[in-house]
């Protein structure tokens, strides 16, 4: 599931994927894969991204239709 909220928050801050990746210390592709929904980041990385974008975890990573983990 694509993370549109993250992409919008990044664009609002006028940051490229590479700039955000530099800020949080990962590769550009990792940010791209989080936005594409192909990678689930750890809580540490989620918090680092939220801090870099001045957002909360709820703002960027809470999904109402998240499938239940079994």
């Amino acid at each position: 599931m694509k993370n549109i909220k993250l992409k919008m928050a990044r664009v609002e801050k006028d940051l490229t994927q590479e700039e955000l990746a530099d800020k949080v210390g990962v590769t550009r592709q990792t940010i791209g894969m989080i936005e594409a929904g192909n990678y689930n980041p750890t809580l540490n990385l989620c918090i680092a991204i939220c801090k870099a974008l001045d957002k909360t975890l709820d703002d960027l990573f809470w999904a109402e239709d998240q499938p239940e983990i079994k």
């Binding site: 990962v26 990792t30 540490n44 680092a48």
Partner: peptide, 19 residues
Amino acid sequence: MEYSMQSSKVDPQIDERIE
């Protein structure tokens, strides 16, 4: 992976996805 509350950076040497 080290994470500091003072900084929004995680360890730049390690990308958790790659690891």
